[in-house]
Design a protein around this nucleic acid. Sequence first.
DNA 1: CATGAATGAGTATTCATTCAT
DNA 2: AATGAATGAATACTCATTCAT
Lengths: 195, 195, 195, 195
Amino acid sequence: MARNKKKKIQEVAAGLFASHGFDNTTTLQIAMESKVTEPLLYYHFKGKEEIFTNIIEELFQKYSELIDELPRDTETEFEKIANLVRLHSQIAEEHPQSAMLFLSNCPSKLMHKHHTCRDILEKQQEIVSSYIQNCLQSGNAKKEFDARPVDHITLILLCLVNEFMRMKTTREKRDQPNMQATIELCRRALLKAHL
Amino acid sequence: MARNKKKKIQEVAAGLFASHGFDNTTTLQIAMESKVTEPLLYYHFKGKEEIFTNIIEELFQKYSELIDELPRDTETEFEKIANLVRLHSQIAEEHPQSAMLFLSNCPSKLMHKHHTCRDILEKQQEIVSSYIQNCLQSGNAKKEFDARPVDHITLILLCLVNEFMRMKTTREKRDQPNMQATIELCRRALLKAHL
Amino acid sequence: MARNKKKKIQEVAAGLFASHGFDNTTTLQIAMESKVTEPLLYYHFKGKEEIFTNIIEELFQKYSELIDELPRDTETEFEKIANLVRLHSQIAEEHPQSAMLFLSNCPSKLMHKHHTCRDILEKQQEIVSSYIQNCLQSGNAKKEFDARPVDHITLILLCLVNEFMRMKTTREKRDQPNMQATIELCRRALLKAHL
Amino acid sequence: MARNKKKKIQEVAAGLFASHGFDNTTTLQIAMESKVTEPLLYYHFKGKEEIFTNIIEELFQKYSELIDELPRDTETEFEKIANLVRLHSQIAEEHPQSAMLFLSNCPSKLMHKHHTCRDILEKQQEIVSSYIQNCLQSGNAKKEFDARPVDHITLILLCLVNEFMRMKTTREKRDQPNMQATIELCRRALLKAHL
DNA sequence: CATGAATGAGTATTCATTCAT
DNA sequence: AATGAATGAATACTCATTCAT
């Protein structure tokens, strides 16, 4: 019953932060919707901020694992890029709340210099960046791609993946970008001109 | 001196909203930094929210004009896409504050159903969308592009442009995406395979 | 009507701080008893602490003036010591609340290193100390007193004056020390053995 | 181990109450510094208040014994007064914490009408008072002193002893009153003019 | 004896907004 | 057009205390 309530608080808070934002979520709301009293929040967490960063940390954990579990032995390097897009499409569809939390830039208050929150978001970007960079370098080496300079293309693909997920998360179904088309566009952009 | 102060209030508010966010900016801060008293804010505006939406409206006005002023008689359709990227790059560099205000999704509080704020952001997206769509259709017609289905590609390019500006605005100089590379990537993705 | 309310707040707060102590006085109590709302406290003062230190500062001001106004041209030096005792007796009787505020050592919270509160109380002690010291030195010089070493006797008389006022303030009438007897005791302790 | 912990709680609480004051000491602080949990405080004591009064009671017990143990067969009555000053000087030096607890008037909250805390402090004052009164009466009878009216002088000496200890406890070493000088001053004040 | 979990009642402080002038 | 004074409604957070085990 104990771990139970802490878990419940985190879940409720995650939902509220995702839909109303950090600043527009009150500790009282979290408490009431979790069916506990406010002081219990402070028994389990140091404060509102810690509730938030805890959520972000767990999310990052899971996200990192998902990236790590992407298949490494694909036939082509491009398949890896395609997988990355698919993964983000899936996250946006299955866990829109989590996506929201990652994307809705934490409030500036929590994005200062060395705040946990900022650190995590930066680490997340680095993870994806290095995944992409790796693909590009291998692909170039194998003459599969013709993607240069690698650094720049990496960043652009990162843009694409980020905003693809953002749009999938925030837009109405009919206005969301199409996964297959996105993959195709990447294919044309990356693969060696196929004469 | 009157119009003067109203202007000052708007400028100061824009700066604070951009750097601290809507929720973390107080009317007192706006008043003090504008060298006026709080009641004057309420003389000129209906409230904090109106100050914000006013700013967004003006911004949207200027932005629309910039899009409208993009040359219509380019040699190729692709040049128009390139111009769009260049424009957003320029905005991010020259008016980072304005870019911030557009991008940092207004707080959910101001994004409800038919709120001015939401309407404007949607209109802005539509403007760019239709600009892109136009290019693609013409380009396809002229056999310059091979971009189908147009709707999907439009959305993907919108993604790219949006996040490109977002990254230019929020990241450190050295981590920003490169404009020229972005344009090149679009070229490869759009132009007919040049065998 | 404006200055009025600020004054009222200070008076009410002084009364509550004196009778309940700083920690056991709530801002709500102060507000209610002053017939204003809590936010007004924060309009006029930076916070609860500032209300307190403001009171102490004013008190110190008045106290300093009272010491300054003690007659300088007395026939004997001892008369000055007697006057000091009389003054404190009078303060304890006429302004017990003020006396209380001075004596009930501010809560440790407000007594840290360079806190205004601590500074003021130290200054107050210094003022009385130097008044006493002056008398003793002059008295010794005139062979009126035989009080040595001056520093030590100064401190002891300070003790006496302080605690005399404290007792007058905190004890029931019938248990209060007697002013005349106190003066007499000082006389015997200070004056040259009168053979 | 049981009595052990109760003892520990009392010691820790005494330290915290002495340095931070009753109101600024939380039960959690006491528990943590005692290396126990809060509910244990409530197992051993009825509440925070009881912890405090228990401490004061024990202190009073010890203090009473010290007064009782002062030598009764001194050569002169004055010697007894001198011994009283010496005792308080010693307490201030060797047990400053205990002195603090006695002197820092319990918070007004605990000083109401018939609260244990108030009763104890009054009893303590009575003990010292009667000790002094006794000396004075005997001294007067023996023509050693010339201290009249006894009641008044008693109270004044009580003042002196109290504040002497207070200053020794709260002031920096160099600003503390000197014991020997204090005794000398008492001697001059009390002893029959020695012509 | 001992504790992890939980809470009722506060508690100082903040903020957008309004009123009287 | 402008302001000094004032407020209703929150808001994050704290604390002494208790319950179930």
